[in-house]
Design a protein around this nucleic acid. Sequence first.
DNA 1: TAGCTAACGTACTGGTTCGTACATTAGCTT
DNA 2: AAGCTAATGTACGAACCAGTACGTTAGCTA
Lengths: 221, 221
Amino acid sequence: MTSVDEPARPGGRIRDAARTQAEILDVATQEFARAGYDGARVDEIAARTRTTKRMIYYYFGGKEQLFTAVLERAYTVIREAEQELDVEHLDPVAAIRRLAELTFDHHEQHPDFIRLVSIENIHGAEHIAASEKLGRIGSPALDVIGRILASGQESGLFTADVDAVDLHAMISSFCFFRVANRHTFGALFGRDLVAAEQREHYRTMLGDMVIAYLTADRAAD
Amino acid sequence: MTSVDEPARPGGRIRDAARTQAEILDVATQEFARAGYDGARVDEIAARTRTTKRMIYYYFGGKEQLFTAVLERAYTVIREAEQELDVEHLDPVAAIRRLAELTFDHHEQHPDFIRLVSIENIHGAEHIAASEKLGRIGSPALDVIGRILASGQESGLFTADVDAVDLHAMISSFCFFRVANRHTFGALFGRDLVAAEQREHYRTMLGDMVIAYLTADRAAD
DNA sequence: TAGCTAACGTACTGGTTCGTACATTAGCTT
DNA sequence: AAGCTAATGTACGAACCAGTACGTTAGCTA
């Protein structure tokens, strides 16, 4: 993140293409997350940077491409975080629980990203489809899940018939819903899913759920 | 749903306030779900009804109130469906599984509703907050879950430390994510969560997950 | 059947918003 | 230090879009 609050150099404008672009992306991320794609205002983004609207069009081409660039950077940040995952030294149960907790923490810490993903889904993921970068970005987390799952299934510890993508969907569902639907859920059921006091409760609940599912004694069904 | 395709009566316009309002709500639901709140066009809604934009303002007051009315009707439909729930004659395990499956089916059958909820969350649930109707609508499903849960916990069958709201969140998470994030998930991981062939797989997965969580032998942890 | 009012239609406006034409300058290169 | 170009700023236009002023009529009521 580039700070937008640095005092403007008194000696006149400074030229720094990289910084200007990063600053536009920072502010655009906030604005798109705040108001949705159509609700976001290009003029508002420009006003909150140290540069002008002209620069947004100069560097990104238009509102649509700016949103795509925002998504690309947001997903890149996630993928880089996933590459730091270090759970494969644990036994499969502990590794999966730890992975679920890291996903939980990550979603909680990046509500803007969650909002961007919701917005992109409203628009049928057309920006992801239009992005070459996002098409081939892959997911390190999926590889990690795959290896843990294989190990757990091989040893007979994990009985569930799921692959890495399914398990990733299961873990993400809970983490995503909790943040994304916080407002309607709170308004309708009077419970703030993201309240600090409830945090440990839901974190444990997620881990228990995933482990119970994976290790359930299916012969008893 | 009111059909919009009936041929216009040749003898001139017909006056029917209820039908006009219902038709506006039908089309508005589609348009808001399609494009989001800011992306939706009042002119487009009007064009796709047999009436004019003037009538939208006459009956609903404005775009904002129209969206609120759309949400109110959508939630009312859900709540009415929930009142049809008839699972309490089953044993707790079967009852919870059935309830999860009904939620699963309902989400799948109402993608527009899912989109409206996503949109409302982007806007901080401000329309729900502004609606008297939605504030006191409650949730029959929560009552049902609460009673089944109590029965299962009393008999020692359910070991998990959850209440009805938590369990509802868990079930909804999976069902909601699968429909709401279908597009980004498909684009990034190459799997369509709502594909017909996968339907039974995910339906079973959800039931297994919830039951495994509720009945897990926690002493073994 | 005269009259009344809820229901409806047409045409327009004023503000907003994306995008651009045109002008300028920082700072590197030779 | 002259010149060149990437980077930047200003001012404006054209389309769009929510909302409204004003006029009309269906069909019930007395």
